[in-house]
């Protein structure tokens, strides 16, 4: 919902620095992140059974991309920036998963 307003804002102001992440928006996102962290920590107190691992991993990934997309506003950035960062991230995931797999880490 944000992306469109951002786009127009940018055009109107002719300034690439405004990425449309208003302070209020940022606070909202931070609250969501905080809630997710609370949920994560709760796994320490409450027994989640079989959901334990998936819940933690999914929350981790969601938090990761929320910060990258909004706080680091990569979502609104030029295609090239995404390419640069996600190439690094993708390569890291690839090589280290393969390396750990050869150690039979996932068996």
């Amino acid at each position: 919902m944000d992306a469109t307003t951002t786009a127009t804002d940018t055009v109107q102001q002719g300034d690439s620095h405004e990425h449309g992440l208003s302070d209020a928006m940022a606070i909202k996102i931070a609250l969501i992140l905080a809630a997710m962290t609370a949920l994560e920590v709760s796994t320490y107190y409450v027994d989640f059974g079989a959901f334990f691992l998936p819940v933690l991993i999914i929350l981790m990934i969601v938090k990761f991309f929320t910060v990258v997309s909004y706080f680091m506003h990569l979502k609104f950035e030029h295609q090239m920036f995404k390419l640069l960062f996600y190439t690094g991230l993708g390569l890291a995931l690839f090589v280290y998963f393969v390396a750990l797999a050869t150690f039979k880490f996932f068996n």
């Binding site: 002719g14 690439s16 620095h17 030029h78």
Partner: peptide, 11 residues
Amino acid sequence: ERPTPTAAITL
């Protein structure tokens, strides 16, 4: 600098 047109570097 960003790969946007140079006009962006105004501030």
